[in-house]
Each structure stands twice: as C-alpha cells, then as structure tokens.
Design a protein around this nucleic acid. Structure first.
Length: 562
RNA sequence: UGGGGCGUCGUCAAGUGGUAAGACACAGGGUUUUGAUCCCUGCAUUCAGAGGUUCGAGUCCUCUCGCCCCAGCCA
C-alpha cells in the first residue's frame, strides 16, 4: 500500500502555493539530475520519488537529466545502470536528457557573460587561485586578470575551446565578488580546460562547464519550475540565481533544498560505497548487503516498498538518521501481501516417523496465503522421513518453548501432530536424528478430540525436496553509526553480515522459482532466487541459490534476548 | 570564531498564535495450523534552554546552547 500524502511536506506546500498564484502558468516541471559516475542508492530513491511524485501529482513532468559535465569521472555503464534502475523503481522519464546536449548553448552563454563584462579568463594556476580565494574568515583578493578587456577574454576563451592550452593554464571565471562572505561567490570558475574524452561528445570539447554554470542553465533551458536539490547546495543558490539573472534565459526556476537521508547501520556516500566495493569488503556494487538500488533489488526489495518508504519518511530540512527498521517494516508490509508461502528447512534435522507406513507417500493440501484465498492452494507430500529445522528442537527446552522436545507434541504444518520419542546422537554427542510417532487421526493438523497443541513447525519431505544454497544477510555494520568515535567505518563492518548455507532442503515447488519473485518461507522470512544464480535462466533450476530478503518479525527471538 | 542551514516522543514527522496528528520502535492484551499477519490499548502537561510580547506561544521577539554544510579547475 502506498502511504497517503495528505498534508504534504514543505516543498509540496510551496508548489501548491505557486499553482494557486498561477506562477509558471500553473505548470510543474521537475528533474532528477544524477551525475553518471556511480550507481544509484536508496538516498537517490528519495530524490527520484520526490521529483517524480511532485510532477505526477500536479500533472507536470519530471525530466531525467544526466549531469555529465565532468568527463573524467563519467561512464556509459553508469548511464545504463541509472536508467534501468529508475525504470525498475517504476518511473517513466521518456527520453533521457543530458547536460552535454547543451554544451553548445552553454558555450554561447559563457560568451554572452564575457561580453557583458561578467566573466573573465583567469590565468592564475590552481595554487594561486586557492590563495586568492581567501578563507572562511578572510576575504579573497581580486585576481590580477580580473580586469582583462572583453576582447582579450573572448580571444583567450576561444583558444581554450580550440585546445590551444593545457589543463590548468586558464579558467573562465564569473566576475562577482572576491570579498563575499559566501565563498561560492568569490569569482567561481565556470569553465575549465579538460582534455578528456566525453562518453557522449567524444573529443569535441577541450573545455567543460562547471556544475554551478551548467545546472541552473540546463534547468532554465528545460523549463524546470522547481529545482529540488539537497541541503549542501543551499550556499550555491545565490550563484544559481546570479547566473540566471546575468543572462538572457528562458525562465528562472526556483531552487529548493531538502535534507538527504541517512539510515543507521549502513553508509550512503558514494565514496564509502566505492571503498567497500574496491577493497572487496562486499562482492560488487549489487551485493545484496549494500544500500545500492541494484543491491537491494537483488536482495529482494520491491520497488513498491522502496517508494512507500520514501513517502513515509517525509521531506524536511532536518539532518536525520532513519531507523533501518522502518525500511524493513515497509518491505515486510509489501511482501506480506504479495509473497506466496512455501516451506523450506535451512538447517535440516532428520525426523523418522516410526509408526508411519514404510513406502507410503501422502498428498496434502497447503494454502499459498493464509489470508488471501484467491492465491489458491498447492499439493505437498508427506512420508516417513522428513526434515525439520534444528532450531525447532531442544533437548532441554524452557517452559515457554512451544516446539519439539523429548516427549513433546507439535503440529507439522498442514500434516500431522507428532510426538518426539527418541533422540539419536552420533559418537561425539551431536543430535543427528529424531524418532517420532504421529497420530493418524490428525491428518491436516487438527485433533478430533480437540486437544490443543501450542506449536506448529514447518517441515519438508526428505524424499521430495530440492537442495539449495541460501544466503542469509544481516546488517552490514555492527554499530548504528558506522563512524562512531571517528573510527574508520571499515573497522565497524559486521563480520556476520553474510552467512552462506548449503544443503538447505526446500519444498519441490521452488524448483520453478524465478529471480525477482518473492516467497515467504513460513516462519523464517522472505526469500528470492538470486539473480546471479548461474542457472537462474533455466527451468527447472538445477542448483538454486536463494537470498533472504528479510526475516519475519520474531517475537520468540525477542523473548529469548530478555 | 565569516557565511548558510537545522533543533517537536527512542527514530522519522505533522503543526503557519487557540490549547501536541500519524508512522516505525517499544509495552500490554485479543484472534491465529506461520511465536507471522490482523485487531485493540498504552506511549511528549510538552516542543534545545532562558527571558519577553499576548487573554492565549511549538508557532511572534530577544539572547544563549547544540548539531550540520561551505575554502575541488567534483557534482
């Protein structure tokens, strides 16, 4: 279920007010502007949802625009990944746009700025530019090139474009105010020489525009009405506005800033995610433990659950650290409704039903969903030899343990009531098998005499199941704040974030599982076939690997902790 | 100690001068062939703090404190 956005957050209020006042002729046009230098993560999802939701809600449009003005960092693979991830999330963006498509026009704008005496070519080197800039508390000094005549500026800028200079020799700077308390206004660089091949424009350009120049003008060129970005660009807004005011532009979009999200027990910065991947602390960008959208997708997160999460957390300007539990709650909410139920045993314990006929196999009916009749039923088989979960047996159970123990009776879901008669161990004392008896009168799980059994456990027919590998994921970090106490976040990695189980026993129907399809393994959690599974294209699946998306809420585990 | 932001329940978050929504979490209870789901109930006399204005302040004013961002030819 999608959360209702009744009252709306502060950005929605601004938009509603603008519509009321017929600003922009009542139109709403937003944009999601990723730089194609990495993969999208859950933090981006917040921005994607915000921008697309606002546009959709007010009958507007949201452009996907790649902010590709730094060819040194950008790659086609990121462009492809970003596009497919946004589609997967469920948003339509039409033809993707690129800031690089505006390079010619941006160049003309730069020339216009020079002609108006509002930009100049500066020939200071990087170190000197830094020195002249001043510091947070000291004003900067004017560059010696600041008063270069327009004609000379044009000539030099043209030569920069033509590739006559090396990187770092000259820059084009906006002429604003070197004494401004806002450092972004101290004659910011708007063009630099960069001899890099661009993924889209190739070697056409020797100079590339900087973000501050590119972004506001791209917004204006696209007729964006509301340019939503994160808080750290608040200081850039005066420059955004200055640029658009200085030039003859189609329109002047309004930049509005909101806080980016943080989630506990994980990290969301591109730099940190990159370190995790490059140093092999995880297995690639789509490792299911990562908060990358590709990782979450592989783990089994649904687009709906992510979108709902983004709605639930709201939008504000307050720095926040959201509880991972909220994300998981949104996930379970969605999966609970969608996922058919099946049975699978992760850590098998063999059970022999001693009074059950030797060569009999019975067919039993199991519901695919306890509440949703329309999801139907399926047949499962039962025989003398089955597997149950090791965790569902205790030799010396406490009073509140409702599962199997010596002499105890439990219900095997959809099958029979069984009682544990004997525990078989190997020489070293490990429990290897349970001998039980069943009550033939309780087929389906109900006792005719009305006696109550408190526990119901899952099981699998040993002669009619498939072997599988199962990956169990847990939080990536031990601490809720991975960088607590200025520690290197790497030291805080949870060594148990991935547990790989082999020889798990799953009910036969799972042989037809497809990646992306969620199942609930009853009493254990939600699982899906790993998309990297080598046989995931085949039916039937010969060597399946399942990922645990999330566990079920577990009151028993909570009780044990206390 | 330059500039820009932000401080409402454990975590998010409504609230726009009229007497603190909601969600997650947590705690109790009910239903249940998943210790799941579902359903009830409880959970801020108080809004970073201190003054002030007002019949009335989380909302207005003043001061104080705390946290975040900015000195890339990154975005």
């Amino acid at each position: 279920m999608e959360a209702k956005i009744e009252k709306g957050h502060f950005i929605e209020s601004i938009i509603k007010e603008d519509i009321k006042n017929n600003k922009n002729n009542g139109k709403v046009v937003t944009r999601f502007p990723p730089e194609p230098n990495g993969y999208l993560h859950i933090g981006h999802a917040k921005s994607i949802c915000l921008n697309f939701n606002m546009a959709n809600k007010f009958n507007g449009r949201c452009n996907l625009r790649f902010d590709d003005s730094n060819p040194a960092k950008e790659k086609q693979i990121f462009i492809d990944s970003i596009k497919s991830t946004i589609n997967w999330l469920g948003f339509e963006f039409g033809t993707p746009l690129f800031a690089s498509d505006y390079f010619d026009r941006l160049y003309d704008f730069a020339v216009e700025l020079i002609k108006k005496g509002k930009a100049y070519v500066c020939s200071l080197n990087a170190g000197d530019i830094k020195k002249y800039r001043g510091t947070l508390t000291e004003p900067g000094k004017d560059s010696p090139y600041r008063e270069r005549p327009v004609k000379e500026n044009i000539k030099l800028f043209t030569r920069m474009k033509n590739g006559e200079f090396d990187e770092g020799e000259h820059t084009l700077r906006a002429k604003i105010d070197m004494k401004s308390p806002n450092i972004n206004l101290r004659d910011p660089i708007i063009y630099r020489v960069k001899k890099a091949s661009h993924p889209r424009t190739g070697d056409k350009w020797n100079i590339y525009p900087m973000y501050d120049f590119t972004h506001c003008l791209s917004d204006s060129l696209e007729g964006i009405t509301h340019s939503l970005c994160s808080l750290e660009f608040e200081d850039h807004r005066p420059l955004y506005d200055w640029t658009l005011d200085a030039l003859e532009t189609p329109c002047h979009p309004q930049q509005i800033e909101f806080a980016r999200m943080n989630i506990n027990y994980t990290v969301l910065s591109k730099r940190k995610l990159q370190k995790l991947v490059e140093e092999n602390h995880v297995n690639g960008w789509d490792d299911p433990r990562l908060p990358t959208l590709e990782g979450m997708r592989r783990r089994g997160y649904t687009p709906e659950s992510i979108r709902n999460f983004c709605n639930v957390i709201g939008v504000s300007k307050k720095g926040s650290r959201i509880d991972m539990g909220l994300l998981e709650s949104c996930l379970r909410d969605d999966l609970n409704v969608k996922a058919p139920r099946v049975m699978g045993v992760l850590k098998p314990l063999e059970v022999i039903i001693e009074n059950y006929p030797e060569n009999l196999t019975e067919e039993l009916t199991a519901r695919n969903h306890p509440q949703k009749e329309e999801m139907g039923t399926r047949k499962i088989t039962f025989s003398k030899q089955i597997y149950v979960e090791q965790d569902d047996f205790m030799e010396n159970p406490p009073k509140k343990f409702f599962r199997l123990g010596p002499g105890r009776e439990v219900r095997l879901r959809y099958a029979y009531l069984v009682t544990c008669k004997q525990v078989i161990k190997d020489e070293s004392g490990n429990i290897i098998r349970l001998i039980c008896t069943y009550d033939p009168e309780t087929r389906g799980g109900n006792a005719p005499d009305g006696r109550k059994v408190k526990g119901t456990i899952h099981w699998v027919n040993a002669n009619d199941c498939i072997d599988a590998k199962v990956n169990l994921y847990d939080r990536l970090f031990k601490d809720e704040n991975p960088e607590q106490g200025n520690r290197d976040f790497i030291e805080n990695l949870n060594p148990g974030s991935l547990k790989e189980l082999e020889l798990c026993k799953l009910e036969k129907s799972l042989i037809n599982a497809r990646p992306g399809k969620a199942y609930q393994f009853e009493r254990l959690g939600y699982f899906c076939l790993d998309s990297k599974n080598k046989d995931s294209g085949d039916t039937p699946n010969r060597d399946p690997v399942f990922n645990r998306t999330v566990t079920l809420r577990d009151a028993w585990a909570k009780m044990k902790k206390r």
